[in-house]
Amino acid sequence: MIDSFTRCWAKELPPKYGCTVNAVSPGPTMTEGFMAAGEEAMKVLQPTIDATPAGKRMGKPEEVAYAVAFLCEERAGWVNGTHIFVNGGLYVD
C-alpha cells in the first residue's frame, strides 16, 4: 500500500505543488519507544534482529534521519516515487 500511494502521489502532486513524494520505512530502530517496550518484547524481537543481513543490531535513529535528510536535499530533487527501506536489508515476507 505504501508503494502504491507513493507512486500515485509522485505522479499527481509534483505538477500541482512543485514537490517530490517519497517514502522511508525504517526497520527496528533503537528509539526510546522501542527501548521502553521491556525485556519480554526485546526477547520476541531478538530473532528478527539476528536475521538482519547488514548486522545483528537495531538501527540507530540517526541512520533513519540520514535517509530522510537525503530526500530533503535540493540535490535529491530528481528522486521521486521512491520507497527507501532503512532496515539493514531486513524485509518482512
Score class of each variant (00 low, 15 high):
I2N: 01
D3S: 00
T6S: 01
R7E: 09
C8Y: 04
W9M: 02
A10N: 00
K11H: 08
E12L: 09
L13N: 02
L13M: 08
K16C: 01
K16E: 12
Y17M: 05
G18H: 10
T20Y: 10
T20F: 14
T20G: 10
N22T: 11
A23Q: 07
A23C: 08
V24A: 11
S25Q: 13
P26W: 05
G27T: 04
P28W: 13
P28E: 10
T29D: 12
T29W: 03
T29E: 07
M30Q: 14
E32T: 12
E32Q: 13
G33R: 15
M35S: 12
A37L: 15
A37P: 00
G38N: 06
E39A: 14
K43L: 09
K43H: 07
Q46H: 01
Q46M: 12
P47A: 08
T48F: 01
I49F: 00
I49H: 03
D50F: 00
A51C: 03
A51V: 03
T52D: 02
T52W: 00
T52C: 11
P53E: 10
P53H: 01
P53I: 02
P53T: 06
A54R: 03
A54H: 01
A54C: 05
A54G: 01
G55Q: 02
G55R: 06
K56E: 14
K56Y: 03
R57D: 03
R57T: 09
M58S: 09
G59A: 02
K60L: 14
E62G: 01
E62H: 09
E63W: 04
E63F: 07
E63Y: 06
V64H: 04
V64G: 09
Y66A: 15
Y66W: 14
Y66H: 14
A67I: 08
V68I: 15
A69I: 04
A69H: 10
C72G: 12
E73M: 15
E73T: 12
E74A: 15
R75N: 15
G77V: 11
W78Q: 13
V79C: 13
N80T: 11
G81L: 04
I84V: 14
I84D: 10
F85Q: 10
V86N: 05
V86E: 02
G89R: 04
G89Q: 03
G89A: 06
L90C: 01
L90T: 05
L90N: 10
L90I: 06
Y91C: 00
Y91A: 10
Y91P: 00
V92Y: 06
V92L: 13
D93H: 06
